[in-house]
């Protein structure tokens, strides 16, 4: 056990050392290949220019290699695999896509993903905004914020255990040890198996993600709220606006850009939601979502790379508009650099 940790730390040290050595050594080699002799000024300046041309690529090399192998190549390969059969060796044209259009499980997943997309980003942003506004006004606001932010550090699997315990079901008449059923029976209701109620169980799973992500929305929106110029609020107060009007008509429009950022960030997260569904229901009781369906097809019956590639591409297609928007936004900010 301890030796495993030592080897991990060793890898870290060696890895960092090898990285540093690469950058240092490549720089040295560059200087040897393109020397700058003090006598020959023309040659020296030519070689200096050559170094300047090569050097950026030495610095970028390892990062580009990793990005290429682990992200760019797979995106292309997944696209190609979607036209091949389950083993990835026989070209089958559009038949995987046709399968997806007709498959009940795929439709169910699309429907559930839409539900998640409708509810989770909206709920997180709204709750985050409300909590940000409220906590900005009280002296213990930063403690409160920190506690709401805390689930952000908890893994989706850990959060699933936490909430599964809340949804725990015992037969009617027995002592309920799950908080939700205990509350329901306290008020005279009947205990329910919450995660096995088709349609509604989706919302019980969404609660977990909302619980985790609201803190994120709150932190970012709270920073944006602080950036609102005071004069605009003052002017509204003088004009006799009430708190509600100030919030909706003065504050919210000014942080619209930030709200959009929070919304899209959570949207991307929702499209990739996997752990929660896997650990809570594993897609049973009509809770399947695209990421889990994709994983399922990756291994089901030896795996079907064609079908799971199609499902992955659907997720990718949903993310693409946000990706383009991000790139344009960043280009505008850096002035096209």
């Amino acid at each position: 056990m301890v030796s495993q940790i030592i080897s991990a730390v060793g890898v870290m040290v060696v890895g960092v050392f090898v990285c540093a050595l690469y950058y240092w050594l490549s720089d040295k080699i560059l200087q040897v290949i393109f020397p700058t002799p003090s006598g020959d000024i023309q040659r020296a300046s030519r070689n200096l220019n050559r170094r300047a041309v090569v050097r950026p690529w030495l610095f970028l090399g390892p990062a580009l290699l990793l990005l290429g192998v682990y992200l760019v190549y797979p995106v292309i390969a997944t696209f190609i695999l979607s036209f091949y059969d389950r083993t990835g060796s026989v070209f089958v044209g559009l038949s995987n896509y046709r399968w997806a259009l007709q498959d009940a499980g795929f439709r169910q997943s699309i429907f559930n993903n839409f539900l998640w997309l409708l509810v989770v980003p909206a709920a997180c942003t709204f709750l985050g905004l409300v909590i940000a506004v409220l906590t900005d006004r009280i002296w213990w606001g930063s403690i409160a914020k920190s506690l709401v932010f805390m689930p952000m550090a908890i893994s989706f699997v850990g959060a699933s255990v936490i909430w599964k315990f809340i949804y725990e079901y015992r037969g009617a008449g027995e002592t309920q040890i799950g908080l939700l059923n205990a509350i329901v029976t306290f008020f005279g209701g009947d205990p329910e198996v919450w995660i096995a109620m088709p349609f509604w169980n989706n919302f019980f799973l969404m609660v977990i993600l909302i619980w985790i992500q609201t803190g994120f929305a709150m932190v970012i929106l709270s920073a944006a709220l602080r950036g609102i110029p005071e004069e605009t609020i003052e002017a509204a107060v003088i004009d006799g606006a009430n708190g509600w009007q100030i919030f909706w008509k003065i504050m919210v429009p000014q942080i619209w850009g930030t709200i959009a950022v929070v919304w899209t960030t959570i949207t991307i997260l929702v499209l990739k939601v996997f752990d929660i569904v896997l650990t809570m229901t594993n897609g049973q009781w009509d809770t399947m979502v695209l990421a889990n369906l994709m994983f399922d097809w990756m291994f089901r019956g030896g795996g079907d790379s064609g079908r799971s590639a199609v499902i992955a591409l659907v997720i990718m297609a949903a993310v693409t508009p946000i990706m383009i928007w991000n790139i344009r936004q960043a280009n505008r900010e850096t002035g096209g650099h």
Partner: peptide
Amino acid sequence: LIATVIGLIVVPLQMSLIPLLR
């Protein structure tokens, strides 16, 4: 390159799994 890196931030992991596993 900068634009590509920003684009890659949101690429879902699911896109990478099958080719990488192979």
